[in-house]
């Protein structure tokens, strides 16, 4: 796709517009949807964007097998159904799935551990694309490697499809603590820090100076209730991805709206209490401490 405005001073696909779209999503909720009808429900509830995928993570877990990019027809159906941005998932390292998603006109590509990785050594070279990418991370080093590859937005990985927020909490705390640690360091200490984090030195230096990631940081993986979303915001997330938590619950429309409101008023327990009342059943969820490594999605990617 080419822009009508590609002149010497005018350009598409710049860092400014890629990272900028994530800035516009801040304070908002991005919801997993598998049909145009669900996308409408999400938009009605106040979602800032939807993530189009074939099966929510809880079903991917239950079904097993190889999980891939969704059918283009299904993605196009969702793109046509809503006016908010549409994201879609490509497998880790599967640059052709990402090319297809860009060609379909999705607004953000999620290079996602929820799908089965297609490359065991290399993530996608995201600088090569006009469409921006969001990637998952469990710690700061992983986040910075993704940013080094061109990711324009980072989310905690959490443990998708569990309805259990504990892993997202761990990842968000780890990322934020390491940012604070870098900000306190002497400039001479940053070389060793970059080596320890296995992260590009220029980005380490940038964070040490600014005290924040150079891209927007959302949370994902196990958020199931308004209070979960609010807690992650208080821990420093700038917005929330909700996967299985909405459409695997008893009353998706109400729960979706409640999570949107709790994200905006994440620091106001009175609002969170009010929106949390009478939502019906949350998704069942499962513990992660006894989960075998083979079932863990967060360990995919490196």
């Amino acid at each position: 796709m080419t822009s009508p405005t590609q002149t010497s001073t005018s350009r598409t696909g710049s860092d400014g517009v890629k990272r900028g779209l994530a800035d516009m999503l801040k304070g908002g909720v991005i919801m997993d949807v598998v049909t145009p009808e669900q996308a409408k429900i999400a938009e009605d509830a106040g979602a800032v964007a939807v993530m189009a995928l074939e099966r929510v993570p809880a079903d991917i877990r239950a079904d097993g097998g190889v999980a891939r990019m969704s059918d283009p027809d299904m993605i196009t159906g969702i793109v046509d159904a809503v006016s908010i941005p549409v994201m879609a998932k490509a497998r880790i390292g599967h640059f052709v799935e990402a090319q297809v998603l860009q060609s379909l006109g999705v607004d953000y590509v999620d290079e996602s551990e929820v799908l089965t990785p297609a490359d065991e050594a290399h993530h996608i070279d995201k600088w090569a694309f006009t469409v921006p990418f969001v990637c998952g991370a469990t710690n700061l080093g992983e986040a910075l490697r993704r940013i080094g590859e061109g990711a324009a937005m980072i989310r905690s990985k959490g443990e998708a499809g569990t309805g259990n927020v504990v892993e997202a909490t761990r990842h968000m705390r780890a990322i934020r603590a390491d940012v604070r640690r870098l900000a306190r360091m002497d400039s001479q200490e940053l070389y060793a820090a970059a080596k320890e984090l296995q992260a590009p030195l220029p980005i380490v230096q940038e964070i040490a100076g600014s005290g924040r990631l150079p891209v927007v940081l959302f949370t994902a993986g196990g958020i199931a209730t308004p209070a979960d979303a609010a807690m992650m915001m208080q821990l420093g997330a700038e917005g929330v991805f909700v996967g299985s938590g909405i459409f695997k619950s008893g009353d998706p429309a109400r729960r979706a709206e409640a999570i949107v409101k709790a994200t905006t008023f994440h620091d106001d327990p009175d609002v969170i209490a009010k929106v949390s009342a009478g939502l019906g059943e949350a998704m069942v969820g499962r513990t992660t401490s006894d989960m075998p490594d083979s079932e863990r999605l967060a360990t995919r990617g490196w």
Binding site: S3, S14, V17, G20, S83, G105, V131
Partner: peptide, 14 residues
């Protein structure tokens, strides 16, 4: 709304 198109058409200019 969204007059210039989808995100791949987002741009910057002087």
């Amino acid at each position: 709304r969204n007059a210039f198109g989808r995100q791949v058409q987002s741009f910057e200019t002087d």
